[in-house]
Design a protein around this nucleic acid. Structure first.
Length: 468
RNA sequence: GGCGACGUGGUGAAGUGGUUCAACACGGAGGUCUGCAAAACCUCUAUUCAGCGGUUCGAAUCCGCUCGUCGCCUCCA
């Protein structure tokens, strides 16, 4: 069974068939670094992360590129307001983005190219478009893509170009275009804006051309998968297809994957409407990053998802259930022979897990396989019907599946020295049957965020993940 | 106005013609275990899948209509 994915362009769910066998090339539209990322942004980044992790888990080589937009209207405005250069502003927010991504256990992309470092590539593309008659220059020196020159325009978004409601929301600074629907490839320099001196004039690149140039720079003129939020389908990705294929004559992307919106209060989470919840704010408020990750990835990527405090609490409880199992499997010790049927039980869980993810990344169903496995192992632990080695095998299986999900506690997590001392003291108190002291020490550990339980395997601890 | 997605229990959500098809998680009720606690396990928590009509031997799953929610057509993950 191979992994099947639903392509936005054709609507078909097809087996993944990389252009280069065994090597998948993926481009994800990344952040525009002018402010803090919100969790809706990260829903789409983490969806791509799970995809990358799963394909690697499956043994495929993956090259993952995520762009960073570091020049656009908002960055320019933000930099002017803050009295810094766009580079300084972008550096600041890119650093924050990296920190958020680390906290949420997003895989580091192989390349995080910045738009301002790839202007040459964009210029080359634009030159090709000008030569082929797909682009034209306006009086002020801006360059636009001529939509009429590309008959397939509108296919991705299933929009009829003639039906676009032009005139209602036309940007004031873009008159001079041959057709109001045409989009900017190059914006002529204006006072107070950064610009580049290039063979096509002095100015700065439009947004859409960035992604075409940077994806091709690292992945080639044709590559396997392009991801982003559904709100990028039109016009961003539609424009990318038009300009890329018009410039190269090659099919641009084989599979388009789009992540549905995260909603807050019933409406799409978006900076422009202000109903956002930033990752920084949540983490600063003490929200467990693993719970947040779980909440964001546990629903199928093409399904809308409502963000509520309750969803985060449910996620934290689910995570805690797995944490407890990991702690129990680690602490378990029983001198007896191996359970003969464990191996097949673990294998069955793995195959359910893989079948779910192969089916267009059905994370909910994959999690169901993990939680069923958890219940089975908890039962065996309670019955003491497995060996110490069996427990280690079950834990190894969970950890292996977690290469995709990345929600389990850190394997290298060590008890802080202070807590370790309290735990040792509690051990001594319990040996002396001094339960008053034992209970007091348990409270002290809880205050440090360490939960302690007494079991046949001795004291067992786990971190208590805060929700808020 | 055009295009599209969706509507499953107290909540989130999987399931897209039959065979444990109503998963899984959260929450709730009862029980077992336990110094206490916690955790875990067991049992229960949707004769029913927005409503109506149709196709079929058989539908949550296909078709039609109605109602409702959301999204795109503009920057946006």
């Amino acid at each position: 069974m191979t992994t099947r994915l639903q392509d936005t362009l054709t609507g078909e769910t097809r087996p993944l068939d990389p252009l280069e066998p065994g090597h998948v090339r993926i481009y994800s539209c990344g952040p525009t670094v002018y402010g803090p990322a919100h969790i809706g942004n990260f829903r789409s980044f983490l969806f791509a992360d799970v995809l990358v992790r799963y394909l690697r888990y499956r043994g495929l080589e993956v090259t993952w590129v995520m762009n960073v937009t570091d020049v656009d209207d908002k960055i320019i405005r933000g930099a002017n307001e803050a009295g810094v250069s766009i580079g300084e502003l972008a550096d600041r927010w890119l650093e924050r983005f990296r920190a958020d991504a680390r906290a949420l256990r997003m895989t580091q992309p192989d390349v995080l190219p910045r738009a301002t470092e790839h202007v040459d590539r964009m210029v080359t593309l634009i030159q090709a478009l000008l030569e082929e008659g797909h682009a034209y220059r306006t009086e002020d020196g801006s360059i636009f893509f001529r939509i009429d020159s590309w008959p397939a325009y509108g296919r991705l978004a299933r929009l009829d170009p003639d039906q676009l409601r032009v005139g209602e929301r036309v940007e004031a600074d873009e008159y001079g275009k041959g057709d109001v629907r045409d989009f900017a490839l190059w914006k002529a320099s204006k006072p107070g804006e950064p610009s580049w001196d290039t063979p096509i004039g002095t100015g700065r690149p439009g947004w859409h051309i960035e992604c075409s140039a940077m994806s091709m720079a690292y992945l080639g003129e044709s590559f396997d998968i392009h991801t982003g939020g559904v709100d990028l389908i039109f016009p961003h990705h539609e424009d990318e297809i038009a300009q890329s294929e018009a410039a190269t004559g090659q099919p641009f992307v084989r599979t388009w994957l789009h992540c549905a919106h995260l909603r807050l209060g019933g409406a799409k989470m978006a900076k422009s409407t202000g109903n956002i919840s930033s990752v920084v704010d949540l983490l600063d408020a003490g929200v467990s990053p693993r719970a947040l990750r779980y909440a964001l990835i546990s629903v199928h990527y093409r399904q809308g998802l409502d963000y509520t405090p309750a969803s985060l609490e449910a996620a934290a409880a689910a995570i805690d259930r797995l944490d407890t199992l990991v702690a129990a499997l680690s602490a378990y010790s029983e001198a007896r022979s191996d359970a003969p049927d464990l191996e097949s039980e673990l294998a069955a869980a793995r195959s359910r897990f893989e079948a779910a993810l192969d089916d267009d990344l059905n994370v909910s169903a994959a999690l169901a396989a993990v939680f069923d496995l958890a219940r089975e192992q908890n039962r065996r632990l309670a019955e003491r019907s497995i060996s110490t080695a069996d427990a280690a095998r079950a834990l190894a299986m969970l950890r292996d599946l977690d290469r995709v999900l990345a929600i389990l506690p850190d394997a290298a997590d060590e008890l802080p020295a202070q807590a370790a001392a309290l735990l040792a003291a509690r051990e001594a108190a319990r040996t002396a049957r001094d339960f008053a002291a034992s209970d007091r020490l348990r409270d002290e550990l809880a205050a440090l965020g360490i939960g302690v339980e007494d079991t046949r395997d001795g004291q067992r601890w786990r971190r208590l993940e805060a929700v808020r």
